[in-house]
Amino acid sequence: MAILTGAAIGEPAPGITQQGGQPQAGQALGRIWRAIRSNKKAFAGAILLAIFTLLAIFPWAIARDNPQAEIYGRSLGPSAAHWFGTTYYGQDLFAQAVWGTRETLIIAVVSGALSTFLSVIMGLAAGYLGGLWDAVLNFITDVLLVIPTFPLLIIIVAYLPGIGVPGLITVLVITGYSYGARQLRAQTLSIRGRDYLEAARVRGERSIYVILVEIIPSMTSLIVATFLGTAVYNVLAAAGLQFLGLGNPDSVSWGTMLYWAQNNEALQTDQYLWAIIPGALIGLLGAAFALINYAFDEISNPALARVSLTRTRQLNPVLRRLSANRAN
């Protein structure tokens, strides 16, 4: 929570400042992959995420049962036929957990990506164009930054009964981009006066070219960190909304599993797994994103790998974002 104040939030985490040169986007992605491979924590996170991705793409390969079908005995305990038991409605919990990965992961990745895209546009435009652009864009971002996100989400979604995943994602993007935009703007401001940008301007390049070709590649790691942080935050926010029965309670996702578990008093009626499993899976998915981010401390600042004193100065940017936003 300590990071939200106007002054403090302006500085991006020192660990994710860019590295001075102007690398090409392709190289940057290659370097990201190498960094993930060489960092144990990040690699563990990547494997975890890969497993979830496989579950989301091929759920039928692992769970043959239809997650919605109410065809089994009610509230059964775990057994060989139903590894996690069944719900009060006679649905297979294992199938629900596996099939629920898809919607949860889609929300995380798509809303994270779109949010990041919006953050980049708003942040870079504000930072690079300056003047009136900066004043207007930055004001919009600042307002969205200070409005308590979760109550705002509740209010918006309440007026849109039965919105599906696309609607949910839209709302998450609009309410969730501001934190990243703020950091990217600050980062843009700090490199605005660099010589290579001056050179591009003197060459007569247009702003859009400078932003796309000169600025964005140099900020890859900050952009990736923004994506990871937003993805975790959106997983939690979406789960919270679905837990309240907002959105579509008939969809299969971890959040709606929790909703039905709560509605049927699963904890009080000995159906623990119904409530425990989806929450644990949400935590694991969030941890996967947060762990991957450890790789970026090191690519963006190789000195960190050796100098342990400076290393401790950084807080994993994903965690920074989460601790700044734990208002839900």
Binding site: V232, L258, L267, G279, G283, G286, A290
Partner: peptide
Amino acid sequence: VFVITSAIPYFWVGMLLILVFGV
């Protein structure tokens, strides 16, 4: 520890507490 606690939903922690210390 913080990586884990920051990624789990608030309310789910509450549910676990209800289960263990309440029920």
